[in-house]
Structure formats: C-alpha cells, structure tokens
C-alpha cells in the first residue's frame, strides 16, 4: 500500500505507527506540505480533492480519512485492534478528532506558523486532556492498561496517542497528568512501536 505522507502531521504518523504495530508494509510517498504546499497542487488535489493528508492507496482503493485507514489496516492485519462491537470506540475516535481540532491546531499555529487562534485551541485541548487523564487514572486503578476496556490495545490508543505525545509542540504540558505520561510510555514500549520527530523512541538496549 502507498501512503502519501507528511512527516510532521500526527494524522500521518498515526497510520505509519499503526502499520508498524500490525506489521503492514507501507510505501511512503513524502508530500512537501510545509513549506512546499504540495497538497494544494493539481496533482495532489486530483488524488484527494479535500487536500488533506494522509492518503492511502491500495490498487483502485483510495482512503482519505486517517481513522478509516486505521480500521482498514486493522481489519486486514489484526482485528483485535478494532473492537467494532464496542460503542466506546466511536467516542474515543471522536475524542481524537477533537484533539486534532484543538491540540493539533494549536501545534500547527505555534510550531509551523499556521493561521488561527492558538489560545482558544489550547484552552479546548486543556479540557480534553484533563478528561482523558481522569479516565486513564481510573482505568489504571481498574487494571485497564489501554484507553478502551479491552486487554488488547486498540486503534483508539493510536488515534489519541499521536496528538497527546506531541502536546508540548502545542504549548501544553503533561506535568500534572501522570496517568497520561505512564500510558504514553506504555504505547512507546509496545512491540513494533516507531517514533516520529518529537516523540522519543524507547532507548536502545533497554532490558524490560
């Protein structure tokens, strides 16, 4: 499968990371979104009229929604990551989209000079992070290791991880959100994990 990819966007990272976690081979085609604006080129808009990244292509099938890509890859490689029977999955994927519109937007404004109201985006993200921290803390106490109740990690973990792990780029801190920091480490240490710039890979030679 071919992934049209921008290295710095969390949505693209989500697909790269998830493909690595389930062992799906991807051929990456880098798109120079920043500063090149290649996603506004005729060629790219012909592929995805929305002008968004990532875009996943498999033969005649084209996906332009990153969460749909996660689900498609899960169905093909390891359905345990996609508990479609559980309504909570809808909630978590919605939470990830809210993080994209708040934390993700504040990050693009602060770090890459995109237009928008960073303070408002950050304030929204703060509320979301508080709530996710609360859920994670009680989840931990109940022996739940991942954001969903399943014993196996899900695409919901990947979908929210890619934003929360980059929250400092958006001017947000996890200092007083200890359960989120522990869960981030748990994701980082998952077998097959890959990093993106801004997220530290587990350090080499760690015996654990």
């Amino acid at each position: 499968m071919i992934l049209y990819d921008a290295h710095h966007l969390p949505e693209c990272y989500a697909v790269r990371l998830f493909a690595a976690l389930v062992g799906a081979p991807l051929t990456l085609v880098p798109v120079d979104v920043y500063p090149g604006h290649e996603h506004r080129s005729d060629d790219f808009l012909a592929r995805n009229p929305l002008g968004t990244l990532p875009v996943l292509v498999d033969g005649d099938t084209v996906w332009t929604d990153w969460q749909e890509m996660l689900a498609a890859l899960a169905l093909r490689h390891d359905a345990a990551w996609f508990p479609a029977h559980d309504p909570a999955l809808i909630g978590w994927l919605g939470m990830a989209r809210d993080l994209a519109a708040s934390l993700g937007l504040a990050r693009l404004i602060d770090t890459f000079g995109a237009p928008g109201d960073a303070a408002a985006a950050r304030a929204h993200a703060d509320v979301l992070l508080d709530e996710i921290e609360r859920r994670r803390w009680f989840g931990e106490r109940a022996g739940k290791v991942w954001v969903m109740p399943q014993a196996h990690p899900t695409i919901a973990d990947v979908a929210v991880f890619v934003f929360i792990a980059l929250c400092e780029d958006a001017g947000l801190s996890l200092r007083d959100r200890p359960a989120l920091r522990r869960w981030i480490d748990r994701v980082r240490f998952a077998p097959g994990f890959i990093a993106m710039s801004g997220v530290f890979p587990p350090m080499a030679n760690v015996t654990r």
């Binding site: 966007l9 120079d32 920043y34 604006h37 996603h39 506004r40 990244l53 890459f112 995109a114």
Partner: peptide, 14 residues
C-alpha cells in the same frame, strides 16, 4: 489534517 490550506503565489521550490 493539514491545515495549511491557504493558496500561495509561489512554486514550492521557490
């Protein structure tokens, strides 16, 4: 998704 939706009068390789 990418939010650099503004158009620009220059080529990428400017």
């Amino acid at each position: 998704m990418a939010r650099f939706a503004r158009t620009i009068a220059h080529t990428p390789g400017c």
